[in-house]
Design a protein around this nucleic acid. Structure first.
Lengths: 130, 130
DNA sequence: TATCTGTTATATATATTATATAACAGTTCT
DNA sequence: AGAACTGTTATATAATATATATAACAGATA
């Protein structure tokens, strides 16, 4: 998987990597059970310190997105079952409200917003839970 | 307007205030032309340093949400005309994609997402640009 | 043994966030 | 004129977050 990092961005590098990996899982660009590069390899590919990648993998493991084996390295969790907790729903609603408020004030209609959602969801592969 | 700050949150205080003010404009809780508390007053109300509030007002002014007059203080910009720039649309799409990817993987359906959007938009007052 | 994994420890540098004091230049009211 | 309020600016400090640098360790593999 090709990662594109913007070093001038306000978003921290480790956060950019996390976001792109989760997007990759959703779109299927990262197959289930697929191996991710080693911390040192990915760090070398991007041109950053391996601790930054290690932070990403540690958090992704913590949140259940990946599993780790000695030597075999890090792979997308084959038993991925991200839960729809009340805490998550609350933060989602809050983030969405912030996003929607500014979008609305800038002239993005409800229909525009629906269209953007539809476009994103159409790019996701059929792996989500029902 | 009553501001609720979570001091344990990962989101910086100044960012929480900004978000709530923009939400307030969208919902109409903050009327157009309405005065906001002075930097010192709001800081005292919340129990934080006035520089933190000053940072909020400076950025809100910079982005066109408020206007500032000596003595009369800060008010919601009566000529609010937030623009739908290409840069803004791009960041909106990117933020939405990140949000949608995780939501999808956690079992939030497209219809759920639409419902959340509709709920937010129904709380916004008719002031947006067309 | 040599080489690859993730992991941990320690140290350093930089930027961000938040606070603390102080002062200044306008405006408004007494 | 003077007091009391505005936003604004300057300076300093502290805590935290982000990123890097070097080194070492334990387990797996060839």
């Amino acid at each position: 998987m090709l990662l594109k990092i913007e070093f001038e961005s306000e978003t921290p590098i480790y956060q950019q990597i996390k976001n792109q990996i989760i997007k990759g899982i959703a779109t299927g660009e990262l197959a289930i059970g697929e191996d991710l590069p080693s911390v040192r390899q990915m760090a070398a590919d991007i041109g950053i310190n391996f601790h930054t990648v290690n932070k990403v993998y540690t958090q992704l493991k913590q949140e259940g997105w990946v599993v780790v084996h000695r030597k075999s390295g890090v792979m997308i969790n084959p038993d991925l079952k991200a839960e729809l907790t009340e805490d998550y729903l609350q933060t989602l609603e809050e983030n969405l409200e912030t996003l929607a408020a500014e979008a609305y004030l800038r002239g993005v209609s409800k229909e525009d917003f629906h269209g953007m959602i539809d476009k994103k969801y159409s790019s996701f592969i059929g792996r989500g839970r029902k």
